[in-house]
Design a protein around this nucleic acid. Structure first.
Length: 559
DNA sequence: CAATTAACTTAGGAGTGCGCCA
DNA sequence: TGGCGCACTCCTAAGTTAATTG
């Protein structure tokens, strides 16, 4: 069953090999070889003129302590280096890397002066930018060589790309949101830290397991599935969502019935499921306190995360959600719900403290077990996929106008995509240059408008001219001017569409839903139906990822 | 049944490199 | 031709799910 290949490399002392045989049940391959991960470049000590000062006095740090100090120095411009937790965590871990002497001297982070280091790194980055073309080429070529050597594996008889074959370089952990571990040291990973995880191994690799880094598993280089396998999985995901489509009415009827159940746990389950379905909330696993940022999903919602309004702005039974979800992105929404849901929520919240669980008789495992019974392969996240894809399809139907030109059709597509992103709460920070680039675009529009009125004036006079002269030449001139006007009108329209699109997209991230939630066949079909080139919707990487869909969907495809 | 954890999937932001425009 | 903004790629964090363990 198992074939083993060990490839030695001059760079690393151990080469990881993963050989698993799982052909029968979702088996992907039975022979695999790869060259192991690429380690972070070794630490280069600072030149002696770049100094560190403690309490105003120059101090030469040991290489170990110096390296960690540089991590902090590189972050000096970030606001989080001023945060107490960040500083506390950093200082604690930094001290662990110090010599006994350094430890005895350096006792207060406030007395540390990293500015020379910081300046040095800024200068370095400037220098990098100022490199000549040849130097840049050289670096690029070296990266390419590394990619060729380590970025691929042999899987059965095919050469396949590997994802993250580079080991994370050491640095300071910066979690998202209010993370209790921010500022902690992420150690450098050395070859001897690598433990090979394989089912059966030869000589040098006899231990199975994973090494730990910063409380979180370091995952040995994972392989990109061959694109056909990746596509297969993707396809399956959307097929499951389509099966949900077939029975979603039944499930909805079911959970509405369950709102009336005598059993509290059933009612909680049913209300949670309603939220997951209606609002595309995530499942919401419970998390260990103090280990991660305080974020929640559906099952882990707390009383403090919602407010109930029997009446609000003319609507009955309004629920206001306000909580931090994945990546500490705020979810804020005010939605009217059915009376039964509202009454249930009142009950769930009765006699509870703000930090008590809303669904105290429910967790993701209970919920998913229930879903599994309702439909094979159904889990909470299938609802997100289903609702995202069905929304795209509906919105495309609604928003696309047959005689719109291509840019207008693409605007419609983006708007449909946007509706999904809003549903899934995919947000982004407004780009730093947003205001400026908006102004620039507006200036372009104004210029184009001027150009248009000029062109119109010229057309008018050409017409007048032609009326008097009545010769071929002046007739032709009218035609030319007419075409010019038309062209400028189109250009103007394109710019205006662009402006609308960009404005509406200010705080919304479209990429996540496009990549992970939207059945690509919907988009492919839409492109085919309206003659929009697929390149306008998917870039090169995306076209590769969705090759399976581009191949198989025709214009009548229905999700 | 709860805790642990492997495996997989989804997420936003930083950095950069490339195309477009003046 | 050079500067600038934007799209894309990479990075790594942070979810979900299911299997295992005791």
């Amino acid at each position: 069953f198992i074939e083993l290949i060990l490839i030695m490399s001059h760079l690393v002392s151990i080469i990881s090999i993963m050989v698993l045989f799982r052909y029968t049940d979702g088996v992907k391959w039975k022979f695999l070889e790869h060259k192991g991960p690429v380690f972070a470049p070794p630490y280069e000590p600072l030149p002696s003129n770049v100094k560190f000062y403690y309490d105003g006095k120059h101090m030469k740090l040991s290489p170990e302590a110096e390296e960690v100090a540089t991590f902090f120095a590189k972050m000096l411009d970030h606001e989080y280096t001023t945060k107490d937790i960040f500083r506390k965590n950093f200082f604690k871990d930094w001290r662990k890397e110090m010599t006994a002497e350094e430890k005895s001297i350096i006792t207060d982070l406030k007395k540390c002066n990293f500015t020379e280091m910081s300046e040095y790194f800024k200068a370095q980055s400037e220098a990098r930018k100022a490199m000549t073309k040849e130097q840049k080429q050289k670096i690029k070529a070296e990266n390419e060589r590394l990619l060729q050597e380590y970025g691929f594996c042999i899987m059965d008889n095919h050469k396949e790309r590997i994802a993250n074959f580079r080991i994370e370089p050491p640095g300071l952990f910066r979690g998202r949101g209010d993370h209790p571990k921010m500022g902690m040291l992420k150690r450098r990973i050395r070859p001897q830290d690598i433990i090979i995880n394989c089912s059966k191994c030869v000589k040098s690799c006899d231990v199975a397991g994973f090494l730990q880094n910063q409380g979180r598993e370091f995952i040995a280089p994972a392989f990109n599935d061959p694109s056909c396998v990746q596509g297969e999985k993707d396809w399956q995901k959307y097929e499951t969502a389509r099966r949900l489509k077939k029975c979603v009415d039944r499930l909805r009827a079911q959970y509405r019935e369950d709102w009336k159940s005598k059993e509290m746990r059933i009612r909680q389950r049913a209300v949670a499921l309603y939220f997951i379905d209606k609002l595309a909330l995530r499942a919401g696993n419970e998390k260990e306190e103090g280990e991660t940022a305080d974020t929640v999903g559906c099952c882990s919602l707390r009383v403090e995360h919602l407010k109930l309004y029997p009446e609000n702005e003319g609507q009955e039974f309004v629920v206001e959600f306000d909580f931090l979800g994945k990546d500490s992105i705020r979810y804020y929404n005010r939605v009217p719900v059915e009376k039964r849901v509202f009454k249930n929520l009142q009950l769930f919240m009765e006699n509870k403290e703000p930090d008590d669980d809303l669904f105290d008789r429910l967790n993701t495992s209970i919920l998913n077990k229930h879903l599994q019974e309702l439909m094979d392969g159904l889990t909470a996240k299938v609802f997100r996929t289903y609702n995202a894809s069905i929304t795209l399809q509906q919105q495309l139907k609604e928003l696309t106008t047959a005689d719109d030109n291509i840019p207008a059709k693409i605007l419609s597509y983006n708007r449909a995509n946007r509706a999904v992103a809003i549903l899934c709460n995919h947000q982004r920070a407004p780009p730093k240059t947003f205001e400026k680039s908006m102004q620039n675009l507006q200036a372009k529009i104004d210029a184009k408008k001027d150009q248009l009125s000029d062109a119109k004036r010229e057309l008018k006079s050409a017409k007048a001219d032609a009326k008097v002269r009545r010769d071929e030449k002046s007739k032709k001139a009218v035609e030319t001017k007419r075409k010019a006007v038309q062209r400028i009108e189109e250009q103007l329209m394109k710019l205006e569409v662009q402006a609308t699109d960009r404005e509406e997209n200010k705080q919304i991230a479209l990429g996540t839903s496009k990549l992970n939630y939207l059945d690509p066949r919907i988009s492919v079909a839409w492109c085919k139906k309206w003659g929009v080139p697929i390149e306008k919707i998917y870039n090169k990487t995306q076209r590769e990822k969705f090759a399976w869909a581009i191949d198989m969907a025709d214009e009548d495809y229905e999700f």
